[in-house]
Structures are given as structure tokens and as C-alpha cells.
Design a protein around this nucleic acid. Structure first.
Length: 233
DNA sequence: ATGCTAATAT
DNA sequence: AATATTAGCA
């Protein structure tokens, strides 16, 4: 009696299909950007997201779609060969959730400033670490996760470990001095902090999108200029 | 046998 | 269109 029917039987173990909420997707994008699109495989993504709602197949499926969207975007921005013809469109519509800056063609651009923005990187790391602390009691989880993977991730682990030291110091100093006073709303402060984090996160994405736009525009200008002007290294 | 991706199915 | 499932490769 529990067979080829359309059993809406409650006992049948069919988990409802996963809906990728914005929050879930942002988490996903966040982790993917952390790993870099080339290292972002389902197992690592799943581990870093650390979300009970997710299974590896969920992530794999979503990753497939996500890569397609990246491809869609990239294909609009690739300049055509050595000629002076430009294939770029849609500069205005770069969405923060669409990491155009991962476009391989963009990354290969000979822009001297491309890799030199350390402040942006550290901001990125701060945001990630705070998020990680929120969702995991112990940072050794992260170390374990990353430790099992090839050495391409060791720089990330270093960053995490070093930054973690400072944040833990902050915590141990701050918490004892706050207990005694009247019940001033710690909850409100938490909310405020959370809001600030979200804002920071969004700003970070906006900055990166703008940076990508700027670099692409510079590239366009370079291609429009006569060759002799550009030749200096 | 396992994990990943591309293709296909719902 | 979004998500799940399968197929086939490494």
C-alpha cells in the first residue's frame, strides 16, 4: 500500500526539495569565493558552509547552476582577440552576487594593481572569520577541513589561524568587563553588530564588483589607444 | 568504490 | 526556471 502511488504518506522518506534562499545562496557564494572558483568542489563547499540543511548533492547541483551563470556573464565581457573590436556589454548591471571579478579573462589582464589590494583582502578575511565564529564553536573544525585538502589551501589556513588569535584576544578581554552592569541590551548590540557585518559584506561585494568594472573599463581604453602609447611597461 | 561534472529528468 | 537525479569519466 505504500508503493507506486503518489504517496503523500508521511512515513515515506522524501525530504522536500531544497530551496536556495538568498541567505543560503550568499553563504554559498561566500564560501565559493573563499576557495576560489577553481577549487570550489562540492565536498569543500559543503564542509565550509557547515549547514545542516545541505547535502553534497544539493551543493553540487547548485554549483552547476552557479558556474553556468558565471559563464553567461563572462562570455559578455571577453574582448575579441587582438583586434580593436570590443565585446563588452552590461557594465552597469554587474550585481554584487555575480562575481565578474572571477572571470578568467579579467584576471589575466595586465593590470599592475590587480593583485595589490591588501586592504580589501583583509577586510574579506575579517568578515569571513566573524561569520565562522558565529557558526562554529571551535576553529579547529576549519583547520581540519582545510588540512585534509591539497596544499593550495594552506595560505587560507595561515590567514585564519593568525587572525583567529587576535579575535580571541578581543573576546577574552571584552567579555569579563561587561557582565556586571545593568542588563543593558547585549542583544541589541549583537543585532547591531550583525547588521554591520551584513553591511560590510555587501560593501565588500560592491567594491569588488566596482573594481572589476574599473579594470574592464581600463582594459577597454587600452585597446582603443594606439599601440605605441601603451607599450611602456 | 568514490567524487566530480555534464546531461538529463522532474 | 529551479532543483534533483543519473551517467559517465577519472
Amino acid at each position: 500500500m505504500m508503493n507506486t502511488n503518489k504517496d503523500h504518506d508521511k512515513k515515506n522518506k522524501k525530504p522536500p526539495r531544497l530551496a536556495w534562499s538568498e541567505e543560503l545562496h550568499r553563504k554559498f557564494v561566500h564560501v565559493v569565493n573563499l576557495l576560489g572558483i577553481e577549487n570550489a568542489i562540492p565536498r569543500k563547499i559543503l564542509a565550509l558552509m557547515n549547514d545542516e540543511r545541505l547535502t553534497k548533492q544539493n551543493v553540487a547541483s547548485h554549483l552547476q547552476k552557479y558556474k553556468l551563470s558565471l559563464k553567461r556573464i563572462s562570455s559578455n565581457c571577453v574582448p575579441s582577440g587582438n583586434g580593436s573590436k570590443i565585446g563588452c556589454v552590461q557594465f552597469q548591471n554587474v550585481s554584487p552576487s555575480d562575481p565578474v571579478y572571477q572571470n578568467a579573462a579579467v584576471q589575466e589582464m595586465p593590470m599592475p594593481t590587480w593583485h595589490s589590494d591588501e586592504s580589501l583582502d583583509s577586510l574579506f578575511d575579517d568578515v569571513f572569520l566573524q561569520w565562522w565564529e558565529d557558526h562554529n564553536t571551535d576553529a579547529t573544525d576549519l583547520s581540519n577541513v582545510i588540512g585534509t585538502s591539497p596544499n593550495t589551501l594552506t595560505p587560507l589556513m595561515d590567514v585564519v589561524n593568525s587572525n583567529l588569535g587576535s579575535t580571541q584576544d578581543l573576546l577574552t578581554v571584552a567579555s569579563p568587563s561587561c557582565i556586571s552592569h545593568e542588563s543593558i541590551e547585549i542583544g541589541e548590540l549583537r543585532q547591531e553588530i550583525a547588521a554591520t557585518r551584513t553591511e560590510t559584506h555587501q560593501l565588500r561585494e560592491t567594491i569588488q564588483a566596482l573594481k572589476a568594472q574599473q579594470d574592464m573599463l581600463v582594459q577597454v581604453v587600452l585597446q582603443l589607444l594606439p599601440p605605441n602609447v601603451v607599450m611602456q611597461q
